[in-house]
């Protein structure tokens, strides 16, 4: 077991939240929203929650687990050597995701229509100048749209959109705008959509860390929870920005990610 894991188990005796604590926490954050929601909650809203949770479930076959966000290259080039490096690397991936991709999730979820999505997709194609990240984004986005169009049959526009653009070659189906669009159609508000994007990004890097054998499954979950408050800070910081402001904030991480294609042996696609 890694040191990280052991250490955290010792220091976090109280870590398994009691349900009371969890509830208090939820109450604090969402007091106002919840009281407003209670008034208008309907059976349709309850059903929508099932759809929303399914979108964030790691069992959704979108191929996210084929990607390490450059972690594999970072390990092989010795940028990630110890547990502290791993945590730091994940935080930087999250920061870059926030500054570069959240604007796309935001705009797509705010205006979940095909024309807006297509413009965002074209812009992101020019913005993802790193080939490894660009291909990873296109393959995850395409897979997500395929899955969503098959499962959310109550939203026929997903299938129509896929049928229209798939053969044309005009769209790349980048992940962030597709994710934002689906969030918008499933009734997520735009701040939840953006937070959810950060969540799945973190989930996938942490999962990659376990499969690279950097950390055990329990240690990974502990780490994921530790990083959550940093991820929340970053979500807040980069939330609700126009795509014109999208920028790289961790150039070193970007360079290392770009090296993925140079690895002689590799487990992941990116």
């Amino acid at each position: 077991m890694s040191e990280l894991f052991t250490k955290n188990c010792e220091s976090d005796q109280a870590v398994p939240f009691t349900s009371e604590q969890t509830q208090n926490c939820l109450m604090d954050c969402d007091m106002e929203e919840m009281s407003a929601d209670n008034v208008k909650t309907s059976p349709a809203d309850h059903l929508q929650q099932w759809s929303q949770w399914q979108l964030l479930d790691s069992i959704l076959p979108t191929g996210g687990f084929a990607h390490s966000s450059g972690l594999e290259a970072a390990v092989q080039a010795r940028f990630v050597v110890g547990p502290e490096d791993l945590k730091f690397y994940i935080i930087q991936v999250l920061e870059n995701t926030g500054s570069l991709l959240l604007p796309y999730v935001y705009c797509a979820s705010k205006f979940p229509d095909v024309e807006s999505w297509f413009k965002l997709d074209r812009l992101l194609e020019a913005t993802l100048t790193n080939e490894v990240s660009r291909k990873a984004s296109a393959s995850q986005g395409s897979a997500l749209l395929r899955v969503a169009a098959s499962i959310y049959v109550e939203i026929p526009s997903l299938k129509q959109m896929r049928d229209t653009y798939l053969g044309s070659g005009a769209a790349s189906f980048h992940h962030a705008p597709i994710f934002g669009l689906i969030c918008g159609l499933l009734g997520f508000d735009s701040s939840t959509s953006q937070r959810a994007y950060m969540f799945i990004t973190m989930r996938d890097v942490v999962s990659a860390a376990t499969r690279l054998n950097l950390i055990g499954p329990l240690g990974a979950s502990v780490l994921q929870h530790q990083i959550a408050h940093v991820a929340e800070q970053m979500t807040k910081k980069w939330m609700d920005r126009p795509v014109e402001e999208a920028s790289q904030t961790s150039p070193l991480v970007d360079i290392v990610q770009g090296c993925h294609g140079y690895l002689f042996s590799r487990l992941f696609c990116s």
Binding site: F88, T127, T249
Partner: peptide, 16 residues
Amino acid sequence: QPLFLDSVLLEQASTC
């Protein structure tokens, strides 16, 4: 037609 759009931002007021 956007062909290449890149912006690098380095500021101290970041998480690290």
